[in-house]
Measured scan of single mutants.
Amino acid sequence: VDYIVEYDYDAQHDDELTIRKGDIIKNVKKLEEEGWLEGELNGKRGMFPDNFVKEIK
């Protein structure tokens, strides 16, 4: 499942992704941690907030 970024987010920890509006995040999975998703961007896998992105259908 792929998501498109709607709002910029700067990573706060090493396991998070810095994302920018218009980025496409690939292979996204829901995490047990409420409010977070995990996906791949530019060869890096990491977490990001689910309210900054929208699923591409």
Rank of each mutant, 00 (worst) to 15 (best):
V1P: 14
D2S: 14
D2A: 15
D2G: 08
D2F: 13
Y3S: 04
Y3H: 02
Y3L: 02
I4F: 11
I4A: 07
I4G: 10
V5Y: 02
V5E: 00
V5R: 00
E6K: 05
E6N: 04
E6S: 04
E6H: 09
Y7P: 00
Y7W: 09
D8I: 02
D8H: 04
D8A: 04
D8R: 05
D8M: 08
Y9A: 03
Y9G: 01
Y9H: 05
Y9V: 02
Y9W: 10
Y9Q: 02
Y9M: 02
D10V: 15
D10G: 06
A11T: 03
A11K: 09
Q12F: 07
Q12E: 09
Q12M: 12
H13Q: 12
H13I: 08
H13M: 08
D14T: 14
D14H: 14
D14A: 05
D14G: 10
D14Y: 14
D14V: 12
D15S: 12
D15R: 13
D15I: 11
D15V: 10
D15G: 12
D15M: 12
E16W: 03
E16L: 03
E16N: 03
E16M: 06
L17K: 01
L17N: 00
L17Y: 01
L17G: 01
L17E: 00
L17A: 01
L17M: 08
L17Q: 01
L17P: 00
T18H: 06
T18A: 05
T18Y: 06
I19Q: 00
I19D: 00
I19N: 01
R20N: 08
R20H: 08
R20S: 05
K21G: 08
K21Q: 11
K21W: 05
K21D: 03
K21P: 06
K21Y: 07
K21N: 06
G22P: 01
G22Q: 04
G22W: 08
G22Y: 09
G22R: 05
G22A: 05
G22I: 01
D23L: 07
D23K: 03
D23W: 12
D23H: 08
D23G: 04
D23S: 08
D23T: 05
D23F: 11
I24L: 06
I24P: 02
I25F: 01
I25Q: 00
I25W: 00
I25A: 01
I25N: 00
K26M: 06
K26P: 01
K26F: 10
K26N: 11
N27D: 10
N27G: 10
N27R: 13
N27Q: 06
N27T: 08
N27K: 09
N27A: 10
N27W: 13
N27V: 06
V28Q: 01
V28E: 00
V28F: 01
K29R: 12
K29V: 11
K29D: 11
K30R: 08
K30L: 10
L31S: 08
L31W: 07
L31K: 08
L31P: 15
L31H: 09
E32N: 11
E32I: 08
E32Y: 07
E32M: 10
E32K: 12
E32P: 10
E32R: 12
E32A: 10
E33T: 12
E33L: 13
E33N: 10
E33Y: 12
E34I: 09
E34L: 12
E34V: 10
E34R: 11
E34W: 04
G35I: 04
G35R: 06
G35H: 10
G35T: 07
G35A: 05
G35N: 08
W36I: 07
W36M: 12
W36T: 05
L37N: 03
L37T: 04
L37A: 07
E38K: 08
E38P: 00
E38T: 10
E38W: 13
E38N: 12
E38R: 11
E38Q: 06
E38I: 14
G39E: 00
G39V: 00
G39Y: 00
G39T: 01
E40S: 12
E40R: 07
E40N: 09
L41R: 04
L41Q: 04
L41W: 07
L41K: 04
L41A: 06
L41E: 01
L41I: 09
L41G: 03
L41N: 06
N42W: 13
N42A: 10
N42G: 09
G43I: 02
G43K: 09
G43H: 12
G43T: 06
G43F: 08
G43A: 07
G43Q: 07
K44S: 13
K44Y: 11
K44N: 13
K44E: 10
K44T: 14
R45A: 07
R45E: 05
R45P: 04
R45G: 03
R45M: 07
R45T: 09
G46K: 03
G46S: 02
M47L: 08
M47A: 08
M47F: 08
M47W: 07
M47N: 12
F48R: 00
F48H: 00
F48L: 13
F48K: 00
F48E: 01
P49T: 09
P49N: 15
P49F: 09
P49E: 06
P49Y: 12
D50A: 15
D50E: 15
D50W: 07
D50L: 14
D50N: 12
N51G: 10
N51M: 08
N51V: 10
N51Q: 12
F52V: 09
F52M: 11
V53R: 02
V53I: 03
V53N: 03
V53M: 02
K54N: 11
K54V: 07
K54A: 11
K54S: 15
K54T: 15
K54I: 05
E55T: 03
E55N: 02
I56R: 02
I56Y: 11
I56S: 03
I56L: 11
I56E: 03
I56F: 07
K57P: 15
K57Y: 15
K57F: 15
K57V: 15
K57A: 15
